[in-house]
Each structure stands twice: as C-alpha cells, then as structure tokens.
Amino acid sequence: MDGAHDMGGVAWSGPVRPEPNEPVFHAEWERRAFAITLAMAMPGGWNIDMSRFARENRPPEDYLSKSYYQIWLAGLERLMLERGLVAADEIETGKPLHPAKPVARTLSRDAVAAMLHRGGPTEREAKGPARFAIGDRVRTRMIHPPTHTRLPRYVRGHIGTVEMLHGVHVFPDSNSLGQENPQWLYTVTFDGRELWGPDGDASVKTSVDAWESYLEPA
C-alpha cells in the first residue's frame, strides 16, 4: 500500500540525529513491547509480512505520530484482535475478561535461543528457471496495490540493472494474505539520475531487492 511507511525520497525537514551511546531500549515498556511482539508470533501464527502490514496499514498521521515501538504495539493489538486472541474490551480496560482461545504453541524460556537461532528463512526450492540474469536491464512495474508490497514508490516505473540473484523467496505481497507463492528474487540497481532526474547524484547507485513479478524486461 502507498502508506506513510514508504519513505524513500520523501522531502523531510531536519537532519538525521544520531544519539551518542544510545541504549538498546529507551524505556521499560519498549523492552516488554519488543519481547511480547516476538513471543506472540508463535501462538498468534502470523508471519512477518502480516506483521508489517498490520503496522503500516494506518492513516499517515497515526503512523507518523507514533514512536517505533508504539507502532509495533498497535500492529500487535490489531493482529491479536483480528484472531480473537484478545477482545477490544480487554485492550480498553487492561484486564482479562474472556477465556483464552486455545493456541497450538507458545514460546517457553527454554525454546528462546533455538527460535532466534533458527529465525525464519524465506528461501524456497526453485520450481523453474529465473526469468532474468545478472546484467539484464529491467523496468519495475508501476503498481499501487492497496495491500502489502515491498516495491517502494521511488523505484516504480524505473529502469535498472540486475546485479544479484538471491534464489527463490517467499513473496511478501501474497504472504501477507497467507500465501507464500515463492518467486525469484533479484537485487536491481538504479543510477541516481534515473531515480531523481537531473538533480540526482550521478555518483550514487541505489538498489532494492525485487521479486520477479515486480519486474519486466526493459
């Protein structure tokens, strides 16, 4: 979706402000929100693209006024509400008011290290050859799906060059709707002036990782 999360190239007032000696978390609630979000994926059964969509699918003023972990929290609440794991009145009152929904799995302390070590690899077996080869010129499609996508607006409709081939990976646009539909994944590189016109920096090249259906021959 063309949401406020898709920030590449948006004119923004103010510089990047690094914080010296920044702590990993800035408040106790950030620690807990982070950990609850990681742990709830197991009983919740959602995947990373469902999580991303639950975070980004909100009005720009909402997305932009929340801090990072507030967005995580809002996304988590939405995912749990959608699946009936918690009810709106429980979120509202902060109290458990209804019986728990049976869940297949939960994350125990003993399972944490293995869960993190395993991660969630997205590469899948190739069922056919890749359409494009390294060095090919490709154009990204001009798409504006109302659902989740990982093709940023600033590269849509532009010509780039295939620089890397990463194998076949789960396709986020469909995975956010529950279908993996794996596709070949490429790194596609664009010249600065192709993306930003005559004001672009010709000494800069920028790439995105793009699934095959985002691309057509140029």
């Binding site: 742990a39 918690v86 869940v103 302390r109 944490v112």
Partner: peptide, 21 residues
C-alpha cells in the same frame, strides 16, 4: 496491562520475555 492479560491467558511466559530482552 497487556502483558498481564497475555500471561493470564497463557499465551506468553514472562520468563521467555525476560530472556528475549
């Protein structure tokens, strides 16, 4: 409050959360 709800419902184990952090 959310952590309490999720713990009481048996969805999360606070000890696992501690270890993640």
């Amino acid at each position: 409050a959310l952590e309490t709800i999720l713990t009481e419902k048996g969805y999360v184990d606070p000890a696992a959360l501690d270890l993640l952090i």
